[in-house]
Amino acid sequence: MILAARNFLELLGYSLILLWRSLAQVGPMFRRPRRLLDQCFFMGNATVGLVILLSFAIGAVLALQTGYSFQDFGAKEYIGSIVGLSMVRELGPVMTAILVVGRIGSATTAEIASMRVYKEVDALVTMNIPPERLLVTPRLVAILFIMPILTLMSIVAGWAGGAIVAHNTSWIDLNYMSYYNTLARFVTDSAVTDGILKGEFFGVSVVLISCAVGLRASGGPRQIGESVTRAVVLSIIYILFTDYFVTELLLSLH
C-alpha cells in the first residue's frame, strides 16, 4: 500500500515535470505542424464515433429512468432539464474522458513504452532532441483542440438520445418542444462552459498520465502491456477521484 502510494506520488511529480518540459517545446513543435495535425486526426478519428454512440445511449437510458421516476409526480416535462444538465455538467465530460482513456491514452502509452523499451527514446536523447518535443507536446496540444469538440458532441448526442426516447416511449410521450424548452431553460451558458473546462482538464490529464507512464517503462515487451494497464487504471481512478474536486471548484466560481 505504502509502495503503491509512493509510486503514485512519484508518477504525479514526474508528470508535472513532464508538463513543464513539454510546455517549453510548444514553440519548436510548431515548426513541424504535421505532427500536431496527425495527432488531431488520430484522436478525432479514434474516438468520435464511439463518443456519439455511447453518449446517445446514456442520454436515452437517463431519459427512460427519469421518465419512470417522474411519471408518478406528473413532472415528465422536466426530463429535458435532467438529461440536459446531467449530460452537460457530468456525463458528457466524464464519459468522453473515459473513452479517451480507452482509445487514446492506451495507444499513447503503448507507443511511447514501446519506443522506450526498444531504445528509440534513448536515440532521441543522444541526438539532442528532447523526447517531449516529438512524443508529448503534439499530443497535449492536440487534445486541447479535440477535447472540447468531443465533449460537445457527447453532450448533443446525449440530448438527442434523451429526446428520442422521451418522445417515442409510449408511457412518457413527451413532445420534442417540451423537452427542448425545459432543457434550454435550465442549461445555461456557464453550465456548458463548465462542462467543456472539465473535459479539457480530464483530457490533458489523461494524455499527460499516459505519456508519463510510457516514458517510465523499462524492461521488455511484457512491461509494455503492464504500462498500458497501469496507465488506463491510473487515469480512470484519477478522473473519478478528481471529478468531485473539479466540480466543486467550478461550482464555487459561480
Binding site: S114, Y118, A123, T126, M127
Partner: peptide, 22 residues
C-alpha cells in the same frame, strides 16, 4: 552533462539499431 554533448557532436549506433519504427 548534456551541455558537453551539445558542444561536441557525439553519436551512438545501438546494438539493435534503435531505428524509429514509425
Amino acid at each position: 552533462d548534456t551541455a558537453t554533448h551539445r558542444q561536441y557532436v557525439t553519436s551512438i549506433v545501438f546494438q539493435d539499431g534503435a531505428l524509429f519504427n514509425s
